[in-house]
Design a protein around this nucleic acid. Structure first.
Length: 158
DNA sequence: GCCAACGTTGGC
DNA sequence: GCCAACGTTGGC
């Protein structure tokens, strides 16, 4: 299966790349996504071995801050049927799960974040989903070309 | 804190 | 099925 590329957003005040780095095996489940479009990607499209841009949103300096690798493809988000979880959803059950998640493992923390403002200046990224006006998808596809451009930017400005 | 953009809900 | 109201996201 061919490798695919993704971008995942997180608010660093809630969960940052440093938190991922501190987690056991630098691995976490990407729980709590409650948007159908993103759900469909998690459930159907994101597979083990895929690459992820780790993005900090809703913060002082929105930026791609590193990369991760998918170590487990889509499976039901069990937080949805845990009443104590803030991600509880009565309409999701083990028999008929509504929400899905993947596991990711940290690959690299960029020496210098690639800021949103820097991305906007790149002609090669002009079609990137993240840069579309009003784009809010928290899990979104990235073209290989875009992934590579961002890695190069991270390297160049480090 | 403001506000634009988007998604969801629910009355009709 | 329409659409207004509401809630959330996320840059600034």
């Amino acid at each position: 299966m061919a490798v695919s590329y993704w971008l995942m957003k997180t608010e660093p005040g809630t969960y940052s790349i440093d938190d991922l780095a501190a987690d056991p095996d630098q691995t976490t489940c990407w729980e709590g996504v409650r948007n159908y479009q993103a759900r469909n990607l998690l459930r159907d499209e994101i597979h083990e071995g895929d690459r992820v841009l780790f993005y900090h949103s809703a913060c002082a300096q929105p930026a791609v801050v590193g990369t991760a690798k998918v170590v487990r493809g889509g499976y039901p988000d069990h937080h949805a049927w845990d009443k104590r979880s803030k991600y509880f959803d009565a309409k999701s059950t083990p028999e008929n799960p509504r929400w899905f998640m993947v596991d990711i493992r940290l690959e690299k923390v960029f020496d210098a974040p690639v800021k949103l403002a820097d991305l906007r200046g790149q002609a090669a990224l002009k079609d990137m989903e993240l840069l579309r006006k009003g784009s809010r998808l928290s899990v979104q596809p990235v073209r290989k070309k875009e992934f590579d451009v961002i890695l190069k930017l991270a390297k160049n400005q480090a």
